[in-house]
């Protein structure tokens, strides 16, 4: 039952987002170099970290699926990856806006975090096409899980590779995404990160609740259909008209 956790998670997200928003715009000091534009940092970086952890979590859940053979884990992995792809899109767009505002270009190749994200995003963009071009549900779950595990390992490896390339070709290092932040900025960042993580957890639970409900409904429908068939077979002699058939469930994913 995913629904039970939904209300506290949603309330927690709302509270944390409000606090984070307040801290970002009224508490954290203006950055000495970047000025007001640095406020994007509190959105962009937590989003990137959470999306990244989402991909990794998707891989771990996929491994649980292959190990336990329980389709529930495949569902969880699917939702985590699906959410991370959407957050990843946000990472790319906000990163691009930040790049335009601070360096004058919509895209910069010397920001390893952003470049790594583009590559990982391009890989995971194939996850859904792969999944939905396999018809057999069992095979679909297994293949998607193999993809998710390989993708999680690749994500880590790719970050190492891009960072190494950046270290050798671009000696100047930007300190926006890390370095030593003042304590008040760091606190704001941590709260923002927590709010983003809570948002992820809430949406993940929400989608799983809806998926679970749809799955249960499908099962009830199938059971009723079977019962109707039995009843029909039993009553055919007594009653010439068959019971109204239940239409098969509309195809849904």
């Amino acid at each position: 039952m995913y629904g039970r956790a939904l209300a506290p998670l949603a309330l927690g997200t709302a509270a944390a987002s409000a606090v984070a928003f307040g801290l970002v715009f009224f508490y954290a000091p203006l950055d000495a170099d970047q000025g007001f534009i640095q406020k994007i940092f509190y959105l962009h970086v937590p989003m990137a970290i959470v999306a990244l952890l989402g991909f990794l979590a998707g891989g771990v859940m996929a491994a649980m699926h292959l190990r336990t053979r329980d389709r529930v884990w495949d569902m969880r992995s699917y939702v985590a990856i699906h959410l991370s792809i959407i957050l990843g899109l946000g990472v790319l767009v906000t990163g691009s806006i930040w790049a335009k505002a601070s360096w004058g270009h919509w895209w910069v190749w010397d920001e390893p975090m952003l470049v790594s994200f583009l590559i990982v995003f391009l890989l995971y963009a194939v996850y859904q096409p792969l999944r939905f071009s396999i018809d057999d549900p069992g095979r679909q779950a297994r293949y998607a899980s193999v993809f998710a595990i390989a993708g999680a390992a690749f994500t880590v490896l790719n970050f190492v590779a891009v960072r190494m390339a950046a270290a050798y070709t671009h000696p100047r290092v930007f300190s926006q995404t890390g370095g030593n932040m003042p304590a008040d900025m760091f606190l704001t960042f941590l709260v923002s990160l927590g709010a983003m993580a809570l948002l992820f957890a809430t949406l993940w639970t929400l989608e799983l609740a809806s998926k679970n409900a749809a799955e249960r409904l499908r099962r009830v429908r199938r059971r009723l259909e079977r019962e109707a068939e039995h009843a029909e077979a039993g009553e055919r002699l007594a009653r010439p008209e068959p019971a109204p058939p239940i239409r098969p469930a509309a195809a849904s994913r």
């Binding site: 007001f36 534009i37 994007i40 989003m47 906000t94 806006i97 930040w98 505002a101």
Partner: peptide
């Protein structure tokens, strides 16, 4: 690059949060 003045920086920051 010098920091952008608040009025143009504000637009970018707002855009980022709206995207989110």
């Amino acid at each position: 690059m010098p920091a952008l003045p608040l009025e143009s920086a504000g637009a970018y920051v707002a855009a980022a949060y709206i995207v989110f």
